[in-house]
Every structure is written in C-alpha cells, then in structure tokens.
C-alpha cells in the first residue's frame, strides 16, 4: 500500500512537472514564432531600405553627372558618392544577396612611370565613364560641366591637374585594337561588364593627340 502511495505521489509530481514543461515549451514556441515574424519583418524592411538606398544612389549619381562642377553641392556629392557606394556594397553583401553590378577596369597613368590600376571594380549598371572615374577616385576629379553638350571637360585627376603643356587624355581599350585615344568624352562612354578605360597624363602635339606612348 505504502509503495503504491509513494509511486502514485511520484507519478503525480512528474505529471505536474511534465505539464509545466509542456506549457513552458508552448510559450517558447510562441516567443520563437513572434521573434521569427519580427525577424522576417526586419529582413523585409532591410531589403526595402537597401532598395531605397540603391535608388538614392542612382539619383545621386544622376545629380552628380548633371551638376555644375563649380557648385559646392557637386563637390560634397561627388566625395560622398564613393563612400556611399562602398557602404551600399557592404550592406548588400551582408544581406546575403548580391546586387546586379558590372565589373570594370580603369587605368590611371600619371605619365611619370606611376600607373594605378582599378581592376574588377564593381559599378552600378548605367554609370558612364565620367561617373566611374569620379567614384573610383573618391571624387578627386576636376572638371568643367558643359550643360549644352551634356559633357564634362576633365582637367584634373587624382590631384594632378592639366598644365600649359600636359593634359589628361581618355583612352579606351579592346583586345584587337589595344589602347586608343577615345573618340568620345567620358560622359558618352557606356560602361558594361569588363569594359576597360584609361586616363593618361602627357603632352600633346599640334593635332591635339598625346605624344607619349600609350600603355
């Protein structure tokens, strides 16, 4: 009788404990569901924010490409653009997805033996040669904007400005013709995957062509 009483008491105790655990478990499941919903909502908000970020970058790029280069807004925006683009790529990478980007290459030849390559650099589709140069050089581009032609005349890159004798020349590259002096301004050069452009700083001849050897 005593054994039966003890066994029953133990069984009752453990049943009570079991019920408590079941209740706790249900609470945890509820909390987890709630947390999961919050996470999904946060994730959706993050993705929406990234999309907004992307659109803002596109708008800022358009503004920088069309702003008068002598305005303070242009100076601020062109410097900020490079930083914002890097931040965007970091955030986008953290989100686990990969935005559609083009990989392009740019060469900066200072004409004194110093060459700086920007290889496989990610850019936003739609950027032209001028915007790419601006972003890769962190805004260190001097130029005059001619709204009537929709073109920039570049007078300085990476802290080196045109002089009476030396100028920056824009080059294009393809595998068959190698490097050629661009027939279009940087604004008119569309950048696609694997597009390569270059800038070379050197004197010009009487035909306004660079006198130095192309890379």
């Amino acid at each position: 009788m005593a054994v039966l009483l003890v066994t029953s008491s133990v069984a009752l105790l453990y049943y009570t404990k079991y019920q408590q655990e079941v209740t706790n478990n249900e609470n945890y499941i509820g909390d987890l569901d709630s947390a999961l919903n919050s996470y999904r909502s946060l994730s959706n908000s993050f993705n929406a924010s990234l999309q907004d970020y992307n659109e803002t970058l596109s708008l800022l790029t358009s503004a920088v490409a069309d702003l008068n280069t002598s305005t303070p807004a242009y100076g601020d925006a062109s410097i900020a653009l490079a930083t914002l683009w890097k931040d965007y790529q970091a955030l986008d990478s953290a989100s686990g997805r990969r935005a559609i980007v083009y990989e392009v290459n740019m060469l900066l030849d200072f004409g004194n033996g110093t060459r700086r390559w920007y290889n496989d650099t990610s850019i936003q589709p739609g950027w032209n040669g001028y915007v790419v140069t601006l972003v890769l050089l962190d805004g260190r581009v001097q130029a005059t904007w001619y709204p009537q032609y929709g073109e920039h005349y570049v007078t300085g890159l990476g802290g080196v400005s045109d002089t009476q004798s030396d100028y920056w020349f824009l080059l294009t590259y393809n595998k068959t013709a190698s490097w050629q002096v661009a027939q279009l301004g940087a604004d008119d050069i569309s950048m696609f995957n694997d597009t390569t452009i270059g800038w070379v700083y050197c004197p010009e001849n009487s035909n306004y062509a660079p006198t130095c050897a192309l890379p």
């Binding site: 490409a65 069309d66 702003l67 709204p147 929709g150």
Partner: peptide, 14 residues
C-alpha cells in the same frame, strides 16, 4: 526635359 538635366541659368543663353 533634357536627359542630361536642366540647363538652369544657362537656358536663356541657349
């Protein structure tokens, strides 16, 4: 409406 942006103050000259 130019795709290169508004001409702004330059418009009267154009």
């Amino acid at each position: 409406v130019s795709p290169w942006g508004q001409a702004g103050e330059l418009a009267p000259f154009l």
